[in-house]
């Protein structure tokens, strides 16, 4: 019996070890992911994002409680930023989730962003998938909403909750593009602070002016997570959104879209890998790079030159076909 079987039987150690495989992007990842293919769509994904200190972790803590009260199991992926200078990270989301430390129906995993090109979103998505495959009914992905990568991660979520707090900017902040547009539900946390009513009014106006879907009006919910106020309403809205997604067929469509985009991402990554690898000892390509570096040629013309160079493309193709041979040998073995 191997580690994946153990995970399916509810072994927490095996589950944790599988998540480490994803985290470190070891060569076993494709094998693991193919094993859980049949089970990964069982659960429901909820994304929580928002500025640092807006109360995401506390909200998630209370959401876990809400889900557990309904006798359902939940997995949490809590993402914190990696230092761009040292590569280290402080992962502090567990501090707010103490109440569930010994609950076997809850599995919390911290993840550092590690500053990789699209790599994190894949690791985070796969982590969420494995948590769901292990039998969790819900998987919550919590991330600091500051960049494109975070938006990519939240893209995995079926329902995305954006957490805001009052008194952090004027009404223009609320209508800026980006993070606000990915929200399925907006939460105004710390609703006992002054400025709450103003923020909610601004948001309602903004949402009224920019309705994204005819079938879903993004709600604004006021919460005080530390006092457990508004949590039940939030959970009900998430459930409502889930029902609407199911009824309109959007959930199925979304999953289809996600599968294709993940597939394309892997293809893209592999091609890039092959091409980059083959350039190490390609004098022609190096020369073009050097010219680009020295500013002798603009990057667009340089790219045109690369794709107009028949020999260079041929070498890429050869590299690709040798890759196919390696892959075939791997399958045979």
């Amino acid at each position: 019996m191997d580690i994946v079987d153990k995970m399916f039987q509810g072994d927490r150690l095996a589950l944790a070890r599988l998540l480490s495989i994803l985290e470190n992007n070891t060569p076993e990842v494709p094998l693991v992911m193919s094993r859980i293919q049949q089970n990964q769509d069982n659960g429901y994904y909820i994304g929580f994002t928002g500025a640092p200190g807006s109360g995401k972790s506390t909200l998630v803590d209370k959401m876990i409680l809400q889900i557990r009260n309904n006798n359902l199991e939940v997995g949490v992926v809590a993402i914190d930023p990696t230092s761009p200078f040292s590569g280290g990270a402080i992962l502090g989301d567990r501090i707010r989730m103490q109440n569930h430390a010994l609950d076997p129906g809850v599995f919390i995993r911290s993840l550092a962003t590690r500053g990789s090109l699209g790599g994190l979103s894949r690791a985070a998505k796969n982590t969420a998938r494995i948590l769901n495959a292990s039998g969790k009914d819900y998987c919550i992905i919590e991330t600091v909403g500051v960049g494109q990568v975070e938006i990519d991660i939240v893209d995995t979520a079926d329902t995305t909750v954006v957490v805001l707090m009052p008194d952090t900017g004027d009404s223009i902040q609320a209508i800026k593009a980006g993070i606000m547009e990915i929200a399925d539900i907006i939460v105004v946390n710390k609703a006992d602070l002054k400025g709450t009513d103003q923020l909610i009014a601004d948001l309602m106006l903004m949402l009224h002016e920019n309705q994204r879907h005819s079938w879903w009006q993004v709600p604004v919910i006021a919460t005080q997570a530390d006092k457990n106020i508004g949590i039940k309403e939030l959970f009900e809205k998430i459930e409502e959104h889930k029902e609407v997604l199911k009824d309109t067929g959007m959930l199925v469509a979304k999953r289809k879209e996600q599968r294709v985009s993940e597939f394309m991402e892997i293809i893209e990554q592999t091609l890039l890998d092959v091409i980059l690898e083959s350039q190490k000892d390609d004098s022609e390509f190096c020369e073009i790079i050097n010219n680009v570096m020295a500013g002798l040629i603009d990057p667009y013309s340089a790219a045109k030159k690369v794709f107009g160079n028949e020999n260079l493309i041929k070498r890429w193709m050869m590299r690709l076909s040798s890759e196919i041979l390696i892959e075939r040998r791997r399958v045979d073995a």
Partner: peptide, 28 residues
Amino acid sequence: YRNAGFEVVYTGQRQTAEMVVAAAIEED
């Protein structure tokens, strides 16, 4: 530790032995 390049999971205070070991397992 962060500056040394480690990923540090901080559990916070008032932990029991059971909580520490459970967190260590989950975080591997």
